[in-house]
């Protein structure tokens, strides 16, 4: 008699969330089975890769390896975003508003918001705006931005317990999405979604950011929290966790020392570009296996590899 594999039964489904507007709008979510478990349930929309750009020239903060593909556009966020879309096929653009950081450049909010607006206007794909996780400053920037880009269905991140009322209300008012960010904890993720619900934010406008740890730097914490969120959402009918998830991968991975060491600094670690690219791609693959719907990436080679992975697995 042929072997009958035992199937996991699922009682829940991840909600669909649409980013952006128009022809290039992207819908994620819809999973009714564990990630890539198409043999026993609906896989929903394929996971997407978003490419990150900074709102300023990253200067020393990026290694030469990471800057190389973008060296002609680093000082021009709009051109940078266009390059990601036209050359590397980015389906979503993420603008990291690094220039707003009160501990660094501390650019005035109006200036930051104006630069982000040029990016939003320059591309037709959805845009995620990723702040600096400083509540006062993010609120200031996002308030201006949500208004100036009203109706574009931007995704605004990170929205945390400390600023969800202000940013959540702005998103609600101008029809944008909320990226609900909590520090690697299932219960806190759930709680923030409940708070956003109480504020009036619809389930179709919430994406979870579980907080990303890079390879070798806490990846396992993010990985397991995401698997627990998937279990709760799909098999325990925890409907407050049935939201798609986004992971800020590139920004975390390329921060770590080993992704940036040159061949002279670390000959024992081999080709520095391939090493960095694989550190980023492997982090992304692990988080996709754990349930990510959107991974935010930096290096075009890593983007290409992970795209290939998703194609093979869907």
């Amino acid at each position: 008699m042929a072997f009958q594999p035992s199937k996991q039964t699922y009682s829940g489904q991840i909600r669909e969330v649409t980013l952006g507007v128009g022809e290039k709008a992207v819908t994620v979510g819809g999973k009714a089975a564990y990630p890539f478990h198409g043999f026993e349930g609906a896989m929903g929309h394929p996971p997407r890769i978003a490419m990150e750009i900074w709102d300023k020239d990253p200067g020393d903060e990026w290694s030469a390896m990471a800057k190389e593909p973008f060296k002609d556009v680093l000082g021009d966020p709009a051109a940078w975003a266009r390059k990601c879309v036209s050359e590397y096929g980015a389906e979503i653009i993420v603008v990291q508003t690094k220039s707003a950081d009160p501990n660094a450049d501390n650019k005035p909010a109006a200036e930051v918001a104006a630069v982000v607006k040029t990016v939003v206007d320059a591309v037709d794909v959805p845009v995620v705006v990723w702040g600096v996780a400083n509540h006062e400053k993010d609120v200031e920037v996002m308030r201006l931005l949500t208004e100036s880009c009203a109706g574009k269905r931007l995704a605004i991140s990170p929205v945390e317990e400390g600023d969800y009322k202000q940013i959540g209300a702005a998103c609600l008012g101008y029809k944008h999405l909320v990226v609900a960010s909590s520090p690697i904890d299932v219960n806190l993720a759930k709680q923030l979604n409940i708070l956003l619900g109480n504020l009036g934010v619809s389930n179709s406008d919430i994406i979870i950011d579980p907080t990303t740890g890079g390879l070798g730097y806490g990846l396992e914490y993010t990985y397991s929290v995401m698997e627990r969120i998937m279990q709760a959402a799909l098999t325990q009918e925890d409907e407050k966790l049935q939201q798609p998830m986004i992971c800020n991968v590139g920004n975390e991975v390329w921060k770590c020392k080993e992704a940036n060491l040159s061949a002279e600094e670390a000959p024992e670690l081999g080709d520095p570009v391939k090493r960095g690219v694989l550190m980023e791609a492997i982090t992304a693959v692990d988080l996709l296996l754990a349930g990510a719907d959107i991974v935010i990436m930096r290096h075009p080679d890593a983007v290409k590899l992970v795209k290939g992975f998703i194609q093979k697995m869907m």
Binding site: E220, E258, L269, G270, K274, M279, I282, D286
Partner: peptide, 20 residues
């Protein structure tokens, strides 16, 4: 065996197999 590929795989293996 290439170090640029082994090193990331080692880190991944370490992370996944760490006692949670």
């Amino acid at each position: 065996f290439q170090p640029h590929s082994l090193f990331p795989l080692f880190l991944e293996r370490l992370n996944i197999y760490t006692d949670p």
